[in-house]
């Protein structure tokens, strides 16, 4: 009589409308306290600026783009968004731990290889990074927070990001379905 212990199934995700209301309340609270919304890509920019500042200080200070984000009294990592994103990672880790979703894995649909998934994840990240700089923020800082404050920039970002992805969905369908 061999009884195999079943793997503990990960918990289900919460109701998306509940998630949306909670996220909206966090965003609202953030604006109420700090006067600004949430963000994400800005922290990566700070990391880029900080890294270049360490490995090629002169180059960073002379750079017409990066130079703007360097000051003499404060390091580029001492920044609201850097702390917020550290919080995001901790919060997601806690949620994933409680829900039994912690797993080192490459997530992809069965019809493609892990290698393909990783190549496109890298390329996608690269493009997203470039896009965030032209767009002055990403889905969090410009689209979501921008829409909440009714800024035109927020609606432009939302429509152009999701509109483009919808138009391209057919051409990249093999990656996902």
């Amino acid at each position: 009589m061999s009884e195999t212990k079943e793997h503990r199934k990960p918990k289900e995700y919460i109701n998306p409308y509940l998630g949306g209301v909670l996220l909206g309340l966090v965003l609202l609270t953030t604006i109420y306290i700090t006067g600004r919304g949430l963000g994400a890509s800005g922290a990566v920019k700070s990391a880029v600026v900080a890294t270049v500042d360490v490995v090629a200080t002169e180059h960073a200070h002379n750079s017409p783009y990066m130079g703007q984000f360097l000051s003499d009294d404060e390091g580029p990592m001492n920044n609201w968004l850097v702390f917020e994103v550290l919080g995001v990672i901790v919060g997601a880790f806690i949620s994933g731990t409680f829900a039994g979703r912690l797993k080192l894995t490459v997530e992809h649909q069965p019809k493609i290889t892990s290698k393909t998934r990783l190549i496109f994840a890298g390329l996608g990240g690269l493009l997203f990074g470039i896009g965030t700089q032209f767009g002055r923020g990403c889905t969090s800082g410009t689209a979501l927070s921008g829409m909440a404050t009714l800024s035109l920039a927020g609606f432009i970002a939302m429509l152009s990001i999701f509109g483009t992805a919808f138009l391209l969905a057919y051409f990249f369908r093999k990656l996902w379905i």
Binding site: A40, A121, G124, L126, G131, C138, A169, L175
Partner: peptide, 22 residues
């Protein structure tokens, strides 16, 4: 720049499946 940035992010989203926060 807002529209061009959004279009490039749209490419990144459909290829990479994530946005920065996620």
């Amino acid at each position: 720049p807002g529209i061009v940035g959004g279009i490039i992010m749209g490419f990144g989203f459909i290829m990479g499946g994530y946005c920065p926060g996620t």
